[in-house]
Nucleic acid binder design. Sequence first.
DNA 1: AATTTATGTCAACATAGCTGACATATTCGA
DNA 2: TCGAATATGTCAGCTATGTTGACATAAATT
Lengths: 177, 177
Amino acid sequence: MSHRGAINEESIQVLDHPMGQADGVDFEIIELLFFAYRDFISDPDAILDTSGFGRAHHRVVHFVNREPGLTVAALLDTLKITKQSLARVLKQLIDSGYIVQIAGPEDRRQRRLFPTVRGRDLALALARPQSCRIANAMEGLNESGRAAVKTFLSGMINSANRSGAADQSDAKEGQDR
Amino acid sequence: MSHRGAINEESIQVLDHPMGQADGVDFEIIELLFFAYRDFISDPDAILDTSGFGRAHHRVVHFVNREPGLTVAALLDTLKITKQSLARVLKQLIDSGYIVQIAGPEDRRQRRLFPTVRGRDLALALARPQSCRIANAMEGLNESGRAAVKTFLSGMINSANRSGAADQSDAKEGQDR
DNA sequence: AATTTATGTCAACATAGCTGACATATTCGA
DNA sequence: TCGAATATGTCAGCTATGTTGACATAAATT
């Protein structure tokens, strides 16, 4: 099967050289991100296996604890999932006493979400191992290195997201999604 | 509803203050990672929607292209999924002409996986927008900043993984997983 | 009063994980 | 040489989490 570039079997062109930097793509960071996130998420996953919840519950508990009183609409916007997807896990979290809903004081159509003590405890328990992993990974870095990491991660995020400022791109559409 | 710490409704303790740094956890980076990865993965997702494949196919095509000739076992180890999960997507990729299997030259039980030109093209098309996003996020950083990002991401990965060195922890067990 | 908004809910479906069980071909060790 | 171990494939069924579409209700808005 020859020297380099291609083998031939049943008239299909088969490549035997690795895709790499020569292709003008930064595969190193792509893979680092893949593995880093996979392992980063595995910490809380292990805890969740015990409690009968999943990643979807994790996200909900996290953001409700980070911003008590947020509305269902705000949560949907943060998670970028449909209300039907959210409904399933949210219902379980409410039924199990991790989160409560309280009608909005101004707009009583809203269901503002608050964590219970139980919900707070869960959110913290899930966050702790992740925080440790991060602290560990930051260990060798000085202040400017740590700042670089934050700058990088922030730069990876679609600017339309994060930090308030609802984008008005779909003010109509009844945003059922 | 009071000053600070807790509301009370139906005798459940409800918290209305945000979970934050006071809890001794680095929520900032936790969330940056969440959003960064979500958006990072959305680029190839958009392309995949067109082609009828999903994230699972993406990963397989990626690693086969990065290491042509890898065995099914090696791929399973990288992806950390079961062979049954892999089988589904791998079969589709083979049937569609993106990947071919060739019996191992030494050990003929092995099915070594190689990309076709078509598979290479797909892998590159998927990697390109991610690489651009990364380049963009790295834009403002100097060399030491970029190095810090790599150090950080590497530090996030379980040392047991990556870079050869099979861990011998489960040499028995028939590793069906 | 009519419409819009915020939310909930039912039903059906897709993707991508999982477990368990079993089949086949090949290699390896006694 | 034969039996065990290995590499892989495959069938069947389950779970988690996403999707669409349709419709219901209460409250706010015009």
